[in-house]
């Protein structure tokens, strides 16, 4: 009699587990914690491709949701958001499982994570705000900004936010999000890099109306004073500061520029089709072609390999040991 009860309990538990498992979200292919990767977020047919330094595709996450951006939160989490979505989802990379989802206002344009204070910031183009969250996804502070806040960067205790459809850049205190300064900038500015060596902030952009922008502007990091322009045609929008250079891609001319901190172009190369982003991964400069759906791995000024990724490569996320 007792054994029968035990059996019944066992079978019931098994059924419960199967039922609960059926309820959980889709699980994606996992990647070990210690693996370095560069991930390409593709937005035409939303997917996230994880690639190692050999150009090997480690995992391919295909999404049902129209994600338009992704950000690494710490070492093992990736946050996915969409401009038209009212939730953001955080996945654990080492398990491929969803960690949590959070309801948000529709209109997210960008998410920026600061590793020093372990917070992330979300800009919204519908509410024209930036909001800070802790690593667990708890909302902290919200601040009203200019029209269409998008590009973000941080330095020390400051958060720099470019208002895309506005003519100002907002400098905030990262803790309480108080606006400390507003600098005049061009409309449709996008792409931001902080060069602490020269104490400058570099901004790219598309340019307004039919006239495309063809230069990167340098501003003083403290005062916002314009230090100069670097001619980088056409439409430099992808900026990335590395140890010894600033990488810039101009999507209008499919051109990669490598400049020193003074703004002198060391070398340049035509690469990809309509590239929006560039990043450094190990010894490689990696450029994502939005129109040709390829990642270009460049080493010592030479294209070493290309990797096919999903349609519309738009963002590059890099994880490597420090």
């Amino acid at each position: 009699m007792i054994t029968l009860k035990k059996w019944a309990f066992f079978i019931f538990s098994l059924l419960q587990i199967v039922w609960l498992a059926g309820c959980t979200e889709k699980t994606y292919e996992s990647i070990e914690r210690d693996r370095n990767f560069i991930a390409s977020l593709n937005i035409q047919e939303p997917s996230l491709d994880f690639i190692d330094e050999n150009g090997k595709v480690l995992a391919k996450w295909l999404f049902d949701k129209a994600y338009s951006g992704a950000t690494l939160i710490g070492d093992d989490q990736v946050l996915l958001y969409g401009h038209q979505l009212n939730t953001m989802d955080v996945y654990t990379i080492s398990t491929g499982e969803k960690l949590y989802s959070k309801k948000v206002e529709v209109g997210i344009t960008n998410v920026y994570y600061d590793d020093n204070i372990k917070q992330f910031f979300i800009t919204n183009s519908k509410t024209n705000t930036v909001t800070s969250f802790d690593q667990e996804g708890n909302e902290l502070v919200t601040q009203q900004l200019g029209n269409y806040p998008m590009s973000m960067a941080s330095y020390k205790d400051k958060l720099y936010v470019v208002n895309f459809k506005d003519t100002k850049l907002s400098v905030l205190n990262m803790k309480n999000l108080h606006i400390e300064q507003e600098w005049p900038i061009q409309k449709s500015s996008h792409g931001i890099a902080i060069v602490e060596e020269t104490h400058e902030l570099w901004i790219g952009g598309h340019g307004e109306g039919s006239k495309p922008n063809s230069s990167v502007k340098k501003y003083d990091l403290n005062t916002g004073q314009l230090h100069g322009e670097i001619d980088m045609p056409l439409m430099p929008v992808g900026l990335k500061k590395t140890r010894d250079a600033v990488l810039v891609v101009s999507h209008g001319h499919n051109e990669l520029y490598v400049a020193d901190f003074d703004g002198h172009i060391k070398w340049q190369q035509e690469v990809g089709a309509n590239p929006f982003v560039v990043n450094q991964f190990k010894d490689y400069i990696v450029v994502a072609g939005y129109d040709d759906h390829k990642l270009y791995f460049i080493k010592d000024g030479q294209k070493e390999k290309t990797v096919d990724v999903g349609k519309g490569a738009f963002q590059l996320l890099v994880r490597e040991e420090k």
């Binding site: 338009s68 340019g207 439409m235 309509n274 929006f276 519309g312």
Partner: peptide, 10 residues
């Protein structure tokens, strides 16, 4: 490129 919808994601 501006006329050719090159900035589409934006």
């Amino acid at each position: 490129p501006r006329e050719l919808s090159a900035c589409v994601p934006f």
